[in-house]
Design a protein around this nucleic acid. Structure first.
Length: 267
DNA sequence: TTAAATTCCTGTAAGC
DNA sequence: TGCTTACAGGAATTTA
């Protein structure tokens, strides 16, 4: 599932391969996205150079010359961007929703589960980047205090902090010894500091390792390369946590996600 | 106003 | 072997 480290991995490849290149063609696949991509806007970008590729949370922002606002892409949960080989037929590509041509380079958006989006806008309430200065231990502490929800639900709320999904929330909570179902108001100042450090650690390590490629291989970079972050997961997708104890699952999902923890090490 | 539940979707895996 | 069912999850929308 693409979360911040996976999207950042994609962003880096796109920047390297496409920055400065001119968009030469747009093909919208069929069946299309659950939410229709803005065909008119996409076509209006043809002929314009891609000046920058940025990331905000789990969103990719493509800047084109002379455009006031970037084109936004969100990979949803099964979305992938990758480069098609020369001469590969787009019609034969399963689940291809969009193809952006940059001369001979063709970037395809493949999305079997159709949760991805193109040309959307950032949500009105959108939290700070967890790896940047605005996201401080104090910000984390104060906002956890003021909420009446479970700590993991807070971390998954993109309006609170941007870019964290189930994998990295699960990992960060394990590393700092907090149960996902703990009421967020009962996280102490000291624990907030530890949680803050754990979040930054799992996300930056995730980026260094090129993201997490799970068994379903839902995430691969645009060259089709696996990420390696899953090899260092302490708890997510494992039968036993790194501490050796058997995992427990919360009785109910949290924010719709299955939630596991170590009942011995997480309080 | 905030939080929880529901909805959108389909490939995969488990169970009979 | 072949069918059915449950499950995975990001975020918008709806309900409480």
């Amino acid at each position: 599932m693409p979360e911040l480290p996976e999207v950042e991995t994609v962003r880096r490849v796109l920047t390297r391969e496409l920055k400065g290149r001119t968009l030469t063609s747009v093909l919208i696949g069929r069946p299309t996205f659950y939410r229709r991509p803005p065909a008119k806007r996409l076509r209006s970008l043809v002929g314009k150079p891609l000046t920058n590729c940025r990331r905000r949370g789990k969103f990719l922002l493509l800047d084109f010359q002379g455009e006031d606002s970037p084109l936004l892409l969100h990979l949803g949960m099964s979305g992938r961007l990758f480069f098609a080989g020369v001469g590969e037929n787009v019609a034969k590509q399963k689940h291809c929703r969009l193809e952006l041509g940059f001369g001979k380079r063709r970037l395809r958006f493949i999305d079997p589960r159709r949760f991805g989006r193109v040309g959307c806008e950032l949500p009105a309430k959108f939290g700070p980047e967890p790896l940047e200065g605005e996201f401080t231990p104090e910000y984390l502490y104060r906002n956890l205090r003021s909420r009446k929800t479970q700590v993991k639900a807070a971390l998954l709320d993109q309006g609170f902090v941007a870019g964290i999904g189930n994998i990295y929330a699960t990992e960060a909570l394990y590393l700092c010894g907090i149960r996902p179902q703990r009421p967020s108001g009962r996280v102490s100042r000291d624990e907030s500091r530890r949680l803050h450090r754990a979040i930054r650690r799992v996300l930056s390590r995730g980026i260094e390792l090129g993201g997490s490629t799970l068994n379903d291989r839902a995430f691969l970079d645009p060259h089709g390369k696996d990420g390696k972050a899953q090899d260092e997961h302490s708890i997510y997708g494992r039968r036993h946590a790194a501490c050796g104890h058997a995992l427990a699952a919360t009785s109910r999902p949290i924010s719709g996600r299955t939630s596991v923890y170590c009942p011995r090490c997480q309080l």
